[in-house]
Amino acid sequence: MKRLLCLVAAVAVLSAFEAAPAAAEGSGAAPAAYSADRLSKEGFVPAAPGQAVEDSVPGGLLMLTAYGVLWTLVGGYLWRLSRRTAATQRDLDALGQRLDDLNARLKQG
């Protein structure tokens, strides 16, 4: 099960890097100046209605990836928990069977 979680995380990370070349092509040499500008700035500014939002890096794809990762992680964890619950249930059934056998033998002997 640990392996599964790792796999999910790995796939998510890989898909994030998959998006990288496309993003890099779009932005060209911009990142350095862009980041310096960004770093000196604090707080978020809402865009005015109708204002064109600069989009050199495909932000939508990055955002979708992020939310995809979150729901994949949560879903994977739930699936793992359900597997564990099923295993525990099987254990419990086997145990009940065994206890019944023992009780029956106790009555006989």
Binding site: V45, Q51, V53, G59, A66
Partner: peptide, 12 residues
């Protein structure tokens, strides 16, 4: 609202 300079990615 969508953030002015980062765009939609800020919704992360």
């Amino acid at each position: 609202p969508v953030e002015a300079s980062m765009g939609i990615v800020q919704k992360i």
